[in-house]
Protein backbone atom coordinates (compact mmCIF):
# COMPACT_ATOMS: atom_id res chain seq x y z
CA UNK A 1 0.00 0.00 0.00
CA UNK A 2 1.15 3.48 -0.82
CA UNK A 3 2.08 5.27 2.39
CA UNK A 4 1.66 8.69 0.81
CA UNK A 5 -1.94 8.40 -0.26
CA UNK A 6 -3.13 5.14 1.27
CA UNK A 7 -4.10 3.66 -2.06
CA UNK A 8 -4.01 -0.09 -1.98
CA UNK A 9 -4.47 -0.52 -5.70
CA UNK A 10 -4.84 -4.30 -6.05
CA UNK A 11 -3.71 -4.28 -9.66
CA UNK A 12 -0.48 -2.51 -8.76
CA UNK A 13 2.48 -4.70 -9.56
CA UNK A 14 5.38 -4.43 -7.19
CA UNK A 15 8.87 -4.95 -8.46
CA UNK A 16 7.89 -7.45 -11.12
CA UNK A 17 10.38 -8.35 -13.83
CA UNK A 18 8.82 -8.93 -17.21
CA UNK A 19 10.41 -10.98 -19.92
CA UNK A 20 12.10 -8.15 -21.80
CA UNK A 21 12.03 -5.29 -19.41
CA UNK A 22 11.22 -4.00 -16.01
CA UNK A 23 7.84 -3.08 -14.72
CA UNK A 24 8.04 -0.10 -12.46
CA UNK A 25 6.80 -0.90 -9.01
CA UNK A 26 4.78 1.52 -7.01
CA UNK A 27 7.83 3.67 -6.60
CA UNK A 28 7.43 5.23 -3.24
CA UNK A 29 6.81 2.36 -0.87
CA UNK A 30 9.78 2.71 1.38
CA UNK A 31 9.47 6.18 2.77
CA UNK A 32 9.63 6.88 6.41
CA UNK A 33 7.80 9.83 7.74
CA UNK A 34 9.73 12.23 9.88
CA UNK A 35 13.26 11.25 8.98
CA UNK A 36 15.86 13.51 10.44
CA UNK A 37 13.71 15.06 13.13
CA UNK A 38 15.40 15.85 16.33
CA UNK A 39 13.85 14.92 19.61
CA UNK A 40 10.76 13.29 18.22
CA UNK A 41 10.64 9.59 17.73
CA UNK A 42 7.88 7.88 15.82
CA UNK A 43 4.92 6.65 17.74
CA UNK A 44 1.55 7.62 19.01
CA UNK A 45 0.83 10.83 20.81
CA UNK A 46 0.91 10.72 24.59
CA UNK A 47 -2.05 11.63 26.73
CA UNK A 48 -1.61 15.07 28.21
CA UNK A 49 -1.32 15.35 31.97
CA UNK A 50 -3.56 17.86 33.67
CA UNK A 51 -2.12 21.31 34.22
CA UNK A 52 -2.13 24.83 32.83
CA UNK A 53 -1.15 25.23 29.19
CA UNK A 54 2.33 26.52 28.42
CA UNK A 55 4.28 27.22 25.31
CA UNK A 56 7.33 25.37 24.14
CA UNK A 57 9.42 25.71 21.02
CA UNK A 58 10.21 22.80 18.77
CA UNK A 59 13.15 23.22 16.43
CA UNK A 60 12.60 21.51 13.13
CA UNK A 61 14.76 22.85 10.32
CA UNK A 62 13.08 20.84 7.61
CA UNK A 63 12.68 21.81 3.99
CA UNK A 64 8.97 22.21 3.37
CA UNK A 65 9.32 20.52 0.02
CA UNK A 66 11.19 17.65 1.66
CA UNK A 67 8.36 15.21 1.10
CA UNK A 68 8.31 15.94 -2.62
CA UNK A 69 12.12 15.91 -2.75
CA UNK A 70 12.28 12.57 -0.97
CA UNK A 71 9.89 10.92 -3.43
CA UNK A 72 11.79 12.58 -6.29
CA UNK A 73 15.06 11.08 -4.99
CA UNK A 74 13.45 7.65 -4.90
CA UNK A 75 12.11 8.14 -8.42
CA UNK A 76 15.55 9.21 -9.61
CA UNK A 77 17.28 6.24 -7.97
CA UNK A 78 14.78 3.88 -9.52
CA UNK A 79 15.11 5.38 -12.99
CA UNK A 80 18.89 5.29 -12.76
CA UNK A 81 19.02 1.69 -11.55
CA UNK A 82 16.77 0.61 -14.39
CA UNK A 83 18.54 2.58 -17.10
CA UNK A 84 15.61 4.89 -17.87
CA UNK A 85 16.44 8.38 -19.16
CA UNK A 86 13.86 10.87 -17.93
CA UNK A 87 13.24 14.36 -19.28
CA UNK A 88 10.99 16.93 -17.62
CA UNK A 89 9.54 19.19 -20.36
CA UNK A 90 8.61 22.61 -19.03
CA UNK A 91 7.18 25.65 -20.79
CA UNK A 92 4.33 28.10 -21.08
CA UNK A 93 1.12 26.70 -22.62
CA UNK A 94 1.23 26.58 -26.40
CA UNK A 95 4.99 26.59 -26.88
CA UNK A 96 4.82 23.30 -28.78
CA UNK A 97 5.71 20.57 -26.26
CA UNK A 98 3.37 17.92 -27.62
CA UNK A 99 4.17 18.71 -31.24
CA UNK A 100 7.88 18.48 -30.47
CA UNK A 101 7.27 15.12 -28.83
CA UNK A 102 5.30 13.83 -31.81
CA UNK A 103 8.03 14.80 -34.23
CA UNK A 104 10.73 13.39 -31.94
CA UNK A 105 8.90 10.07 -31.67
CA UNK A 106 8.53 9.90 -35.46
CA UNK A 107 12.18 10.82 -36.01
CA UNK A 108 13.55 8.26 -33.59
CA UNK A 109 11.24 5.51 -34.81
CA UNK A 110 12.07 2.15 -33.34
CA UNK A 111 15.70 3.02 -32.59
CA UNK A 112 14.83 4.39 -29.18
CA UNK A 113 12.01 3.14 -26.94
CA UNK A 114 9.92 6.01 -25.60
CA UNK A 115 7.17 6.56 -23.07
CA UNK A 116 5.33 9.71 -22.09
CA UNK A 117 3.62 11.09 -19.00
CA UNK A 118 1.30 13.93 -19.96
CA UNK A 119 0.25 16.56 -17.44
CA UNK A 120 -2.73 18.82 -18.10
CA UNK A 121 -5.47 20.35 -16.01
CA UNK A 122 -8.14 18.57 -18.01
CA UNK A 123 -8.66 16.14 -20.94
CA UNK A 124 -6.56 13.28 -22.29
CA UNK A 125 -6.06 14.95 -25.66
CA UNK A 126 -2.26 15.01 -25.42
CA UNK A 127 -1.93 11.39 -24.29
CA UNK A 128 -4.28 10.40 -27.12
CA UNK A 129 -2.01 12.16 -29.63
CA UNK A 130 1.01 10.25 -28.34
CA UNK A 131 -0.77 6.89 -28.28
CA UNK A 132 -1.78 7.36 -31.91
CA UNK A 133 1.93 7.11 -32.72
CA UNK A 134 2.14 3.73 -30.98
CA UNK A 135 3.92 5.04 -27.88
CA UNK A 136 2.75 4.36 -24.33
CA UNK A 137 1.34 7.42 -22.60
CA UNK A 138 -0.28 8.10 -19.25
CA UNK A 139 -2.35 11.24 -18.75
CA UNK A 140 -2.36 13.02 -15.40
CA UNK A 141 -5.16 15.55 -14.92
CA UNK A 142 -4.33 17.93 -12.11
CA UNK A 143 -7.70 19.72 -11.98
CA UNK A 144 -6.93 22.86 -10.02
CA UNK A 145 -3.24 21.92 -9.70
CA UNK A 146 -0.71 24.08 -11.50
CA UNK A 147 2.24 21.64 -11.60
CA UNK A 148 3.12 17.96 -11.45
CA UNK A 149 4.73 16.58 -8.31
CA UNK A 150 6.96 13.59 -7.66
CA UNK A 151 4.18 11.55 -6.11
CA UNK A 152 2.00 11.84 -9.22
CA UNK A 153 4.95 10.86 -11.40
CA UNK A 154 5.66 7.80 -9.23
CA UNK A 155 2.09 6.62 -9.76
CA UNK A 156 2.07 7.37 -13.48
CA UNK A 157 5.41 5.64 -14.05
CA UNK A 158 3.97 2.58 -12.30
CA UNK A 159 1.41 2.35 -15.08
CA UNK A 160 4.03 2.23 -17.82
CA UNK A 161 6.13 -0.66 -19.01
CA UNK A 162 9.64 0.73 -19.06
CA UNK A 163 12.70 -0.96 -20.50
CA UNK A 164 16.36 -0.16 -19.96
CA UNK A 165 17.23 2.54 -22.50
CA UNK A 166 13.72 3.99 -22.56
CA UNK A 167 13.43 7.74 -22.90
CA UNK A 168 10.60 8.76 -20.58
CA UNK A 169 9.34 12.28 -21.23
CA UNK A 170 7.23 14.00 -18.61
CA UNK A 171 5.29 16.82 -20.22
CA UNK A 172 4.61 19.14 -17.32
CA UNK A 173 1.65 21.51 -16.96
CA UNK A 174 2.04 24.54 -19.23
CA UNK A 175 3.20 27.08 -16.66
CA UNK A 176 6.47 28.97 -16.28
CA UNK A 177 6.21 29.51 -12.52
CA UNK A 178 5.12 26.63 -10.29
CA UNK A 179 6.58 23.53 -11.99
CA UNK A 180 10.08 24.96 -11.46
CA UNK A 181 9.91 24.23 -7.74
CA UNK A 182 8.96 20.58 -7.94
CA UNK A 183 11.64 18.02 -8.61
CA UNK A 184 10.10 14.96 -10.23
CA UNK A 185 13.18 12.75 -10.23
CA UNK A 186 14.01 13.55 -13.85
CA UNK A 187 17.49 13.07 -15.33
CA UNK A 188 17.38 16.45 -17.08
CA UNK A 189 15.14 19.47 -17.48
CA UNK A 190 14.25 20.78 -20.91
CA UNK A 191 12.55 24.18 -21.12
CA UNK A 192 10.78 25.19 -24.33
CA UNK A 193 10.74 28.86 -25.21
CA UNK A 194 8.82 29.65 -28.38
CA UNK A 195 9.87 32.63 -30.46
CA UNK A 196 6.31 33.99 -30.36
CA UNK A 197 6.58 34.53 -26.59
CA UNK A 198 8.94 37.51 -26.74
CA UNK A 199 12.66 37.57 -26.10
CA UNK A 200 12.45 38.76 -22.48
CA UNK A 201 10.77 35.60 -21.13
CA UNK A 202 13.95 34.35 -19.40
CA UNK A 203 14.26 37.63 -17.51
CA UNK A 204 10.61 37.63 -16.52
CA UNK A 205 10.56 33.96 -15.42
CA UNK A 206 14.17 33.38 -14.40
CA UNK A 207 13.65 30.52 -12.00
CA UNK A 208 12.46 28.02 -14.59
CA UNK A 209 15.13 28.98 -17.13
CA UNK A 210 17.86 28.97 -14.52
CA UNK A 211 17.44 25.28 -13.86
CA UNK A 212 17.17 24.12 -17.47
CA UNK A 213 19.81 21.72 -18.73
CA UNK A 214 18.63 22.56 -22.22
CA UNK A 215 16.48 25.37 -23.57
CA UNK A 216 14.79 24.77 -26.90
CA UNK A 217 13.93 27.88 -28.87
CA UNK A 218 10.87 26.49 -30.66
CA UNK A 219 8.91 27.58 -33.76
CA UNK A 220 12.11 28.90 -35.31
CA UNK A 221 10.46 28.73 -38.75
CA UNK A 222 8.42 31.79 -37.69
CA UNK A 223 11.51 33.96 -37.09
CA UNK A 224 11.41 35.68 -40.51
CA UNK A 225 7.87 36.88 -39.75
CA UNK A 226 8.58 38.26 -36.27
CA UNK A 227 10.54 41.07 -34.68
CA UNK A 228 12.05 38.57 -32.27
CA UNK A 229 15.67 39.50 -31.46
CA UNK A 230 17.31 36.10 -31.24
CA UNK A 231 20.70 37.42 -30.13
CA UNK A 232 19.14 39.39 -27.32
CA UNK A 233 17.00 36.38 -26.29
CA UNK A 234 20.03 34.11 -26.17
CA UNK A 235 21.99 36.64 -24.18
CA UNK A 236 19.16 36.95 -21.63
CA UNK A 237 19.09 33.16 -21.40
CA UNK A 238 22.82 33.10 -20.68
CA UNK A 239 22.24 35.77 -18.05
CA UNK A 240 19.91 33.61 -16.01
CA UNK A 241 21.53 30.30 -16.86
CA UNK A 242 25.19 30.55 -17.81
CA UNK A 243 25.70 26.80 -17.99
CA UNK A 244 22.63 25.60 -19.89
CA UNK A 245 22.66 24.78 -23.58
CA UNK A 246 20.33 26.26 -26.21
CA UNK A 247 19.10 24.82 -29.50
CA UNK A 248 16.75 26.57 -31.93
CA UNK A 249 14.38 24.26 -33.79
CA UNK A 250 11.11 23.96 -35.65
CA UNK A 251 8.85 20.95 -35.25
CA UNK A 252 7.09 22.02 -38.43
CA UNK A 253 10.06 22.17 -40.80
CA UNK A 254 12.50 19.96 -38.90
CA UNK A 255 15.13 22.72 -38.75
CA UNK A 256 17.47 22.15 -35.81
CA UNK A 257 16.14 18.64 -35.20
CA UNK A 258 19.49 17.00 -35.87
CA UNK A 259 21.03 18.95 -32.99
CA UNK A 260 18.14 18.15 -30.66
CA UNK A 261 18.19 14.42 -31.42
CA UNK A 262 21.97 14.33 -31.01
CA UNK A 263 21.63 16.03 -27.62
CA UNK A 264 18.94 13.57 -26.58
CA UNK A 265 20.83 10.45 -27.60
CA UNK A 266 24.17 11.68 -26.26
CA UNK A 267 22.68 12.49 -22.87
CA UNK A 268 20.82 9.21 -22.77
CA UNK A 269 24.12 7.46 -23.35
CA UNK A 270 25.88 9.61 -20.76
CA UNK A 271 23.19 8.73 -18.23
CA UNK A 272 23.94 5.06 -18.83
CA UNK A 273 20.59 4.35 -20.39
CA UNK A 274 21.81 2.14 -23.17
CA UNK A 275 19.42 -0.31 -24.76
CA UNK A 276 21.84 -3.21 -24.43
CA UNK A 277 19.48 -5.14 -22.17
CA UNK A 278 16.92 -5.53 -24.93
CA UNK A 279 16.42 -8.93 -26.53
Amino acid sequence: MCVECGCGAPGQEVGGERRRGVVLPHLHHDHHEGEGHEGSGPGASLPLPEGPEVNRTIRIGQDILEKNNRIARDNRDFFREHGIFVLNFLSAPGSGKTTLLERTISALGTTCPMAVIEGDQETSRDADRIRRLGVQAVQINTGAGCHLDAHQVAHAAGDLELFPGTVLVIENIGNLVCPALFDLGETARVVLFSVTEGEDKPLKYPRIFREADLTLLTKSDLLPHLDFDRTWAESSLRGVNPRGETIALSSRTGEGFGLWLSWLLAHREKAGSLPQARG
Binding site: L46, L48, P49, E50, G51, P52, E53, V54, N55, R56, T57, I58, R59, I60, G61, Q62, D63, I64, L65
Partner: peptide
Protein backbone atom coordinates in the same frame (compact mmCIF):
# COMPACT_ATOMS: atom_id res chain seq x y z
CA UNK B 1 12.16 27.33 1.95
CA UNK B 2 12.28 25.74 5.36
CA UNK B 3 10.23 25.19 8.48
CA UNK B 4 12.52 26.33 11.30
CA UNK B 5 10.51 26.06 14.46
CA UNK B 6 7.09 25.75 15.99
CA UNK B 7 5.93 27.37 19.19
CA UNK B 8 3.25 25.03 20.49
CA UNK B 9 0.96 25.02 23.45
CA UNK B 10 0.49 22.03 25.65
CA UNK B 11 0.54 20.88 29.24
CA UNK B 12 3.35 18.41 29.18
CA UNK B 13 6.02 21.08 29.15
CA UNK B 14 4.97 22.36 32.53
Amino acid sequence: FRLCELVVRDRRTL
